[in-house]
Protein backbone atom coordinates (compact mmCIF):
# COMPACT_ATOMS: atom_id res chain seq x y z
CA UNK A 1 0.00 0.00 0.00
CA UNK A 2 1.26 3.46 -0.83
CA UNK A 3 0.72 6.65 1.07
CA UNK A 4 -1.47 9.32 -0.56
CA UNK A 5 0.26 10.88 -3.54
CA UNK A 6 -0.89 14.48 -3.49
CA UNK A 7 1.47 17.16 -2.17
CA UNK A 8 2.32 17.17 1.50
CA UNK A 9 -0.28 14.49 2.16
CA UNK A 10 2.33 12.07 0.88
CA UNK A 11 4.21 12.50 4.13
CA UNK A 12 1.19 12.38 6.43
CA UNK A 13 2.14 8.90 7.67
CA UNK A 14 5.00 10.49 9.60
CA UNK A 15 2.31 12.01 11.82
CA UNK A 16 1.26 8.47 12.69
CA UNK A 17 4.85 7.47 13.43
CA UNK A 18 5.61 10.49 15.58
CA UNK A 19 3.82 9.45 18.81
CA UNK A 20 5.96 6.30 18.89
CA UNK A 21 9.16 7.75 17.48
CA UNK A 22 9.41 10.84 19.72
CA UNK A 23 9.24 9.24 23.19
CA UNK A 24 11.37 6.35 21.93
CA UNK A 25 14.12 8.62 20.61
CA UNK A 26 14.03 11.01 23.56
CA UNK A 27 13.59 8.60 26.47
CA UNK A 28 15.29 5.44 25.22
CA UNK A 29 17.79 6.05 22.41
CA UNK A 30 19.17 9.45 23.45
CA UNK A 31 19.93 8.36 27.07
CA UNK A 32 21.67 5.25 25.74
CA UNK A 33 24.07 7.21 23.54
CA UNK A 34 24.47 9.95 26.11
CA UNK A 35 25.65 7.29 28.60
CA UNK A 36 28.54 6.53 26.30
CA UNK A 37 29.39 10.22 25.94
CA UNK A 38 29.11 10.98 29.67
CA UNK A 39 31.41 8.10 30.54
CA UNK A 40 34.39 10.09 29.17
CA UNK A 41 33.74 13.08 31.44
CA UNK A 42 34.17 13.95 35.05
CA UNK A 43 31.01 15.79 36.06
CA UNK A 44 28.90 15.98 39.19
CA UNK A 45 25.72 16.52 37.18
CA UNK A 46 24.91 19.94 38.62
CA UNK A 47 24.03 22.36 35.79
CA UNK A 48 26.75 24.97 35.30
CA UNK A 49 29.45 23.04 37.12
CA UNK A 50 32.58 22.14 35.13
CA UNK A 51 32.43 19.12 32.87
CA UNK A 52 35.95 17.85 32.35
CA UNK A 53 37.02 15.45 29.60
CA UNK A 54 38.95 12.63 31.26
CA UNK A 55 39.12 10.08 28.45
CA UNK A 56 39.13 6.50 29.71
CA UNK A 57 40.03 7.25 33.32
CA UNK A 58 36.53 6.44 34.60
CA UNK A 59 36.90 2.98 33.07
CA UNK A 60 40.37 2.61 34.58
CA UNK A 61 38.93 3.33 38.04
CA UNK A 62 36.52 0.43 37.75
CA UNK A 63 38.84 -1.99 36.06
CA UNK A 64 42.02 -1.70 38.12
CA UNK A 65 42.09 1.16 40.63
CA UNK A 66 40.91 0.34 44.15
CA UNK A 67 38.56 0.99 45.89
CA UNK A 68 36.22 1.02 42.85
CA UNK A 69 37.89 -1.90 41.13
CA UNK A 70 37.48 -3.97 44.33
CA UNK A 71 33.76 -3.24 44.33
CA UNK A 72 33.41 -3.84 40.62
CA UNK A 73 35.13 -7.22 40.56
CA UNK A 74 33.34 -8.32 43.71
CA UNK A 75 29.96 -7.40 42.22
CA UNK A 76 30.87 -9.04 38.92
CA UNK A 77 31.90 -12.26 40.68
CA UNK A 78 28.55 -12.23 42.50
CA UNK A 79 26.82 -11.83 39.14
CA UNK A 80 28.66 -14.90 37.86
CA UNK A 81 27.50 -16.85 40.94
CA UNK A 82 23.94 -15.63 40.36
CA UNK A 83 24.13 -16.73 36.73
CA UNK A 84 25.26 -20.19 37.87
CA UNK A 85 22.43 -20.41 40.42
CA UNK A 86 19.89 -19.33 37.82
CA UNK A 87 21.13 -21.98 35.37
CA UNK A 88 20.36 -24.67 37.93
CA UNK A 89 17.33 -23.21 39.72
CA UNK A 90 15.63 -21.40 36.89
CA UNK A 91 16.43 -23.25 33.66
CA UNK A 92 17.22 -26.62 35.31
CA UNK A 93 14.35 -26.79 37.79
CA UNK A 94 12.03 -25.12 35.26
CA UNK A 95 12.77 -27.80 32.67
CA UNK A 96 12.29 -30.54 35.24
CA UNK A 97 8.91 -29.20 36.36
CA UNK A 98 7.85 -28.75 32.74
CA UNK A 99 8.72 -32.36 32.02
CA UNK A 100 6.72 -33.46 35.07
CA UNK A 101 3.79 -31.46 33.70
CA UNK A 102 3.97 -33.42 30.44
CA UNK A 103 3.87 -36.68 32.40
CA UNK A 104 0.67 -36.11 34.35
CA UNK A 105 -2.69 -36.62 32.71
CA UNK A 106 -4.80 -34.48 35.01
CA UNK A 107 -4.30 -31.16 36.75
CA UNK A 108 -1.66 -29.82 34.32
CA UNK A 109 -3.48 -26.51 33.82
CA UNK A 110 -3.99 -26.10 37.54
CA UNK A 111 -0.30 -26.62 38.38
CA UNK A 112 0.72 -24.39 35.51
CA UNK A 113 -1.48 -21.55 36.78
CA UNK A 114 -0.13 -21.86 40.33
CA UNK A 115 3.51 -22.03 39.24
CA UNK A 116 3.07 -18.96 37.06
CA UNK A 117 1.12 -16.89 39.61
CA UNK A 118 4.07 -15.18 41.39
CA UNK A 119 5.19 -13.80 38.01
CA UNK A 120 2.30 -11.34 38.12
CA UNK A 121 3.45 -9.84 41.44
CA UNK A 122 5.83 -6.90 41.50
CA UNK A 123 9.38 -8.11 42.15
CA UNK A 124 9.82 -5.36 44.76
CA UNK A 125 6.62 -6.39 46.56
CA UNK A 126 7.85 -10.01 46.43
CA UNK A 127 11.03 -8.87 48.17
CA UNK A 128 9.09 -7.09 50.92
CA UNK A 129 6.89 -10.14 51.48
CA UNK A 130 9.81 -12.55 51.75
CA UNK A 131 11.82 -10.25 53.99
CA UNK A 132 9.03 -10.67 56.57
CA UNK A 133 8.77 -14.42 56.02
CA UNK A 134 12.54 -14.89 56.35
CA UNK A 135 12.86 -12.84 59.53
CA UNK A 136 14.96 -15.03 61.87
CA UNK A 137 12.76 -14.58 64.99
CA UNK A 138 9.22 -13.98 63.80
CA UNK A 139 9.31 -15.17 60.20
CA UNK A 140 7.00 -17.95 59.05
CA UNK A 141 9.81 -19.89 57.31
CA UNK A 142 11.82 -20.54 60.47
CA UNK A 143 8.63 -21.09 62.48
CA UNK A 144 7.63 -23.79 60.03
CA UNK A 145 11.08 -25.41 60.14
CA UNK A 146 10.98 -25.47 63.95
CA UNK A 147 7.48 -26.91 63.94
CA UNK A 148 8.49 -29.89 61.80
CA UNK A 149 11.57 -30.53 63.93
CA UNK A 150 14.17 -29.10 61.58
CA UNK A 151 15.44 -26.59 64.14
CA UNK A 152 18.96 -26.87 62.80
CA UNK A 153 17.77 -25.46 59.47
CA UNK A 154 16.18 -22.37 61.04
CA UNK A 155 18.91 -19.95 59.96
CA UNK A 156 19.34 -16.18 59.77
CA UNK A 157 18.78 -16.46 56.02
CA UNK A 158 19.34 -12.84 55.11
CA UNK A 159 21.77 -11.95 57.88
CA UNK A 160 24.49 -14.47 57.10
CA UNK A 161 26.97 -13.35 54.47
CA UNK A 162 27.26 -16.87 52.99
CA UNK A 163 23.51 -17.56 52.88
CA UNK A 164 22.19 -14.16 51.89
CA UNK A 165 22.97 -14.22 48.17
CA UNK A 166 21.58 -17.73 47.48
CA UNK A 167 18.52 -16.88 49.60
CA UNK A 168 17.78 -13.69 47.68
CA UNK A 169 18.23 -15.57 44.40
CA UNK A 170 15.91 -18.33 45.61
CA UNK A 171 13.24 -15.67 46.25
CA UNK A 172 13.88 -14.31 42.78
CA UNK A 173 13.42 -17.81 41.32
CA UNK A 174 10.19 -18.28 43.32
CA UNK A 175 8.97 -15.14 41.56
CA UNK A 176 10.14 -15.99 38.06
CA UNK A 177 10.08 -19.79 37.69
CA UNK A 178 6.76 -19.85 35.83
CA UNK A 179 8.42 -18.37 32.78
CA UNK A 180 11.07 -21.05 32.10
CA UNK A 181 8.47 -23.72 32.94
CA UNK A 182 6.12 -22.41 30.26
CA UNK A 183 8.83 -21.97 27.65
CA UNK A 184 10.21 -25.47 28.27
CA UNK A 185 6.69 -26.92 28.36
CA UNK A 186 5.73 -25.30 25.04
CA UNK A 187 8.93 -26.67 23.51
CA UNK A 188 8.24 -30.16 24.87
CA UNK A 189 4.71 -30.16 23.53
CA UNK A 190 6.12 -29.45 20.06
CA UNK A 191 7.88 -32.82 20.12
CA UNK A 192 5.87 -35.09 17.79
CA UNK A 193 3.74 -37.51 19.84
CA UNK A 194 4.09 -40.42 17.41
CA UNK A 195 7.89 -40.36 17.79
CA UNK A 196 7.57 -40.71 21.55
CA UNK A 197 4.94 -43.43 21.18
CA UNK A 198 7.12 -45.36 18.72
CA UNK A 199 9.99 -45.17 21.20
CA UNK A 200 7.70 -46.43 23.93
CA UNK A 201 6.65 -49.38 21.79
CA UNK A 202 10.35 -50.12 21.23
CA UNK A 203 10.72 -50.38 24.99
CA UNK A 204 12.33 -47.02 25.77
CA UNK A 205 11.35 -45.92 29.25
CA UNK A 206 10.33 -42.32 29.87
CA UNK A 207 13.79 -41.20 30.98
CA UNK A 208 15.35 -42.57 27.81
CA UNK A 209 12.58 -40.89 25.83
CA UNK A 210 13.45 -37.61 27.50
CA UNK A 211 17.22 -37.80 27.02
CA UNK A 212 17.26 -39.25 23.52
CA UNK A 213 14.28 -37.49 21.95
CA UNK A 214 12.84 -34.56 23.89
CA UNK A 215 16.05 -33.02 25.21
CA UNK A 216 17.85 -32.62 21.85
CA UNK A 217 14.71 -31.07 20.34
CA UNK A 218 14.19 -28.51 23.08
CA UNK A 219 17.90 -27.67 23.47
CA UNK A 220 17.72 -24.40 21.45
CA UNK A 221 14.95 -23.18 23.77
CA UNK A 222 17.01 -24.10 26.80
CA UNK A 223 20.01 -22.22 25.42
CA UNK A 224 17.74 -19.23 24.93
CA UNK A 225 16.55 -19.51 28.54
CA UNK A 226 20.19 -19.61 29.68
CA UNK A 227 20.95 -16.45 27.73
CA UNK A 228 17.96 -14.82 29.45
CA UNK A 229 19.38 -15.99 32.81
CA UNK A 230 22.59 -14.20 31.90
CA UNK A 231 21.02 -10.86 31.03
CA UNK A 232 18.56 -11.37 33.89
CA UNK A 233 21.43 -11.66 36.37
CA UNK A 234 22.75 -8.29 35.19
CA UNK A 235 19.30 -6.74 35.41
CA UNK A 236 18.77 -7.73 39.04
CA UNK A 237 18.40 -4.76 41.31
CA UNK A 238 15.06 -4.46 43.12
CA UNK A 239 15.15 -7.78 44.91
CA UNK A 240 18.54 -6.99 46.49
CA UNK A 241 17.69 -3.34 47.13
CA UNK A 242 14.44 -4.24 48.88
CA UNK A 243 15.70 -7.20 50.90
CA UNK A 244 19.28 -6.14 51.68
CA UNK A 245 19.31 -2.36 51.12
CA UNK A 246 21.33 -0.21 48.71
CA UNK A 247 24.48 -1.33 50.53
CA UNK A 248 23.64 -4.94 49.59
CA UNK A 249 24.46 -6.35 53.01
CA UNK A 250 25.65 -8.03 55.04
CA UNK A 251 29.10 -6.61 54.22
CA UNK A 252 28.32 -6.24 50.49
CA UNK A 253 27.85 -10.01 50.23
CA UNK A 254 24.81 -9.55 47.95
CA UNK A 255 26.24 -6.65 45.94
CA UNK A 256 25.56 -7.04 42.23
CA UNK A 257 26.36 -4.82 39.25
CA UNK A 258 22.78 -3.49 39.53
CA UNK A 259 23.12 -2.30 43.14
CA UNK A 260 26.69 -1.06 42.63
CA UNK A 261 25.47 0.97 39.67
CA UNK A 262 22.62 2.45 41.71
CA UNK A 263 25.01 3.53 44.47
CA UNK A 264 27.46 5.00 41.96
CA UNK A 265 24.70 6.96 40.25
CA UNK A 266 22.72 8.12 43.26
CA UNK A 267 25.19 8.30 46.10
CA UNK A 268 26.02 5.99 48.93
CA UNK A 269 29.63 5.59 47.77
CA UNK A 270 31.08 8.77 49.24
CA UNK A 271 31.68 12.15 47.62
CA UNK A 272 34.44 10.98 45.29
CA UNK A 273 32.15 8.52 43.56
CA UNK A 274 29.09 10.68 43.05
CA UNK A 275 30.33 11.54 39.56
CA UNK A 276 27.87 10.98 36.74
CA UNK A 277 30.74 9.98 34.47
CA UNK A 278 31.85 7.15 36.73
CA UNK A 279 28.32 5.71 36.83
CA UNK A 280 27.98 6.06 33.08
CA UNK A 281 31.25 4.17 32.59
CA UNK A 282 29.91 1.31 34.69
CA UNK A 283 26.73 1.33 32.61
CA UNK A 284 28.73 1.13 29.37
CA UNK A 285 30.83 -1.78 30.70
CA UNK A 286 27.58 -3.57 31.56
CA UNK A 287 26.12 -2.82 28.12
CA UNK A 288 29.23 -4.38 26.59
CA UNK A 289 28.78 -7.53 28.68
CA UNK A 290 25.00 -7.91 28.24
CA UNK A 291 24.21 -6.79 24.70
CA UNK A 292 26.22 -9.47 22.83
CA UNK A 293 24.49 -12.21 24.82
CA UNK A 294 21.07 -10.62 24.25
CA UNK A 295 21.81 -10.45 20.53
CA UNK A 296 22.65 -14.15 20.46
CA UNK A 297 19.47 -14.89 22.43
CA UNK A 298 17.34 -12.90 19.99
CA UNK A 299 18.89 -14.78 17.08
CA UNK A 300 18.20 -18.15 18.64
CA UNK A 301 14.72 -17.00 19.55
CA UNK A 302 13.99 -15.90 15.97
CA UNK A 303 15.35 -19.07 14.47
CA UNK A 304 13.50 -21.47 16.72
CA UNK A 305 10.51 -19.47 17.87
CA UNK A 306 8.02 -21.39 19.96
CA UNK A 307 4.29 -20.75 19.94
CA UNK A 308 3.05 -20.31 23.49
Amino acid sequence: MYAGKKGLGRYSFWLMLAPALLPYLVFKIYPFFNSILLSFYNWNGVPGSPKIWVGLSNYAKFLYQPPFSTMFWRALSHNVIVFGLLLIWSTGLGTLLAWFLTQVRKGGGFYKGIIFMPNTISIAVTGFLWSLLLNPQFGAVNALLRKVGLDALAMPWLGDSKLALPTVIAVNVWHGLGFPVLIALAAMLSVPKDVLEAAEVDGANRFTQFWKITFPIILPNLINLMALNFSGAFGLFEIVFVMQGAEAGPFYSTDLIGTLFYRTAFGGMGATASGMGLGAALAVVTFLIVIPVSLIATRIQRRYSVEV
Binding site: F32, S35, M276, F287
Partner: peptide, 9 residues
Protein backbone atom coordinates in the same frame (compact mmCIF):
# COMPACT_ATOMS: atom_id res chain seq x y z
CA UNK B 1 19.05 -2.13 25.11
CA UNK B 2 18.35 -2.40 28.85
CA UNK B 3 16.56 0.89 29.72
CA UNK B 4 17.58 1.06 33.33
CA UNK B 5 21.30 1.17 32.61
CA UNK B 6 20.76 4.56 30.95
CA UNK B 7 19.29 5.96 34.16
CA UNK B 8 21.97 8.64 34.64
CA UNK B 9 21.36 10.56 31.38
Amino acid sequence: VPSRLAIIP
